[in-house]
Amino acid sequence: MTNLLDVADLTVHFQSDAGAIEAVDHINFSIRRGEVVGLVGESGSGKSVTSFAILRLIRRPGEIKSGSVRFDGVDLATLSEEQMRRIRGAKIAMISQSPRTALNPVIPVGKQISRLFRLHEGLSARVAEKRMLDMLDLVRIPDPRRRAGQYAHQLSGGMCQRIMIAMALATSPRLLIADEPTTGLDVSIAARILDLLRELGAKTGAAIMLITHDLGVVAEICDRVVVMHAGQVVEAAPVRSIFHAPAHPYTRALVGSIPRVDRDVAMTPIPGSVPSLLNPPPGCRYVSRCDHATDQCRVARPPLESRGQDHDVACYYDIGRQTGGVAA
């Protein structure tokens, strides 16, 4: 069976007065059916841009420069805008990072959900409302009938995120893109939202692409992780390998920067910040922050290569070989 989503060689540029900003640079990754994939990286590494590019919603001055996005075997670039609209929301849904502002302030939240049924499935107002109440029940909103009539500003942040999840899952999408779904929620609410996502994903068979900078979240619910840095994929591996045998220096640094309370290890911040994406140099983009950088790294970009089972890395330096292997 083919992958649910294949992103190949995708490049997104934003035109600015100073030149093109290479927000996403020739990235490759796949998502299988029903899989939960974490897209991890610092702010500005191109995670959100990637998700908008998948939905073909990059707006000027942004532009998809090259590459293809195949969803369910279909190249999305070949679809008409009308066909694309039928994919958005119905086949690929998205949860935004700020639920309160992503809900329309002047439309009752229930109506925002029931409208989706009418838009994508052509249901009558009455049936749509019933399905909407079922959805609110599914995301465990207490007293759904009353909540449905309320506006976003009358609900708590966690409640708004539940509404967003209900909205996203309403039309049983095959892929759910969750863009930092738990930022801005407090920890206990965040954990419950993640559980809900994982559970509903499994129940509906939807694959989840979870965009986050929080490796704790990744460890909790992801099957596989794609690590992005400065608009490029630097490593893709199952979640266990990422934590136990990170191969790219950036991934190692990310894992090392997680505060640990169970072990007496100092947390190490990553030096420097994401380099400017305006006319970047040709070599590896992590070079200025890397301990293992060589001349080769400065001249040519390391290709994304397989390092064993389901594990791709874009780095010339082989940590596993140098250190005699870290147990996976």
Binding site: R86, R88, G89, M94, S96, A102, L119, M167
Partner: peptide, 14 residues
């Protein structure tokens, strides 16, 4: 430019 405009686009509204 509001997020709910983005949200309306991501769910496939014409």
């Amino acid at each position: 430019e509001m997020e709910y405009a983005d949200a309306a686009r991501t769910v496939g509204n014409p």
